[in-house]
Amino acid sequence: MNNNLTVNDLSVAYQGKIALDHISLTVSPHKLTGVIGPNGAGKSTLLKSILGLIPRTSGEITCLGAPITKQQKNIAYVGQRQDIDLSFPVDVLGVVMFGTYPKLGLFRRPKKNEAALAWQCLKKVGMTEYAKNQIGELSGGQLQRVFIARALAQEADWIFLDEPFAGIDATSEGIIISLLKDLRDEGKSIVIVHHDLHKVRDYFDELILLNQQLIASGTVDDVFTAEHMMRAYGDSIVDMARIGGNRHAE
């Protein structure tokens, strides 16, 4: 069975302005894949258009050997924190329980089995002591762990995360990337929009480098080169990471 996620000729435009221009690539399963590129490159747009959250001008997406529209139950999405209504009156366990809904079907409500699954997912991310807290009481790092638990409760094969490390402290970031690496090792396929070039080699197995067009995709060694980064970022790359520790940049 083909477990890849394949993007073929994907384009997206907003009000006549091109956001993504004829992107074609393949994402390998059971990997941590980072989506990188400068501000405005279309990183979040790529994720949202793949998942059907925003319309595509063109393109076909397949996942697990079928059109992605047939695989929604096998895909979980963790959006940016500012997209979440933190005043919503629900506790942490309730948020994780939402992850069980896609496989329940219409008019069915979660019961004892779903509650047990949600608890196990909270336990996996180390957040059971906060189960009864309202989500607005959590720190940024704690919130991200809860949203990952919700994705786990969905029992999806693929997990997409949009800037999960934005605005959180270094300790929380370390906890989350360790958790995501464990999930990869257990067979999950994880795609992350990421902006900190210093962490690329430590965090990811493969990369997608964008600047409206696809600059490169593949292994970190193949993509994270001085030539590709200059194409994506231009002269600003000199003022940024200097492609921290990249032997190809010498």
Rank of each mutant, 00 (worst) to 15 (best):
I243C: 14
L47K: 04
G234Q: 03
I243F: 08
N4M: 14
M230T: 11
R145P: 01
A149F: 10
A249V: 08
A166T: 12
K123T: 05
Y130F: 13
E129M: 04
A166C: 04
D21M: 00
L5R: 02
L51G: 02
L179I: 09
T128K: 01
Q144P: 07
D222H: 14
R56W: 11
I135E: 00
Q212V: 13
V193H: 05
L138W: 08
K199E: 00
N113I: 02
W119T: 08
M1V: 06
N246F: 06
G140T: 04
S139L: 09
A216D: 10
G52E: 02
L143D: 04
L143E: 06
V200A: 09
G16W: 09
I177E: 02
L143I: 09
L86P: 00
H248Y: 01
I54L: 14
I84W: 09
G59N: 05
R145L: 13
L210C: 04
L117I: 15
Q120N: 15
I159F: 14
N74Q: 15
P55G: 15
L53S: 01
V191A: 08
I68F: 12
D202Y: 01
L183A: 02
G34P: 06
Y203P: 03
D196A: 09
R109P: 00
S178E: 14
Q72T: 13
I23H: 10
E155R: 09
T69G: 10
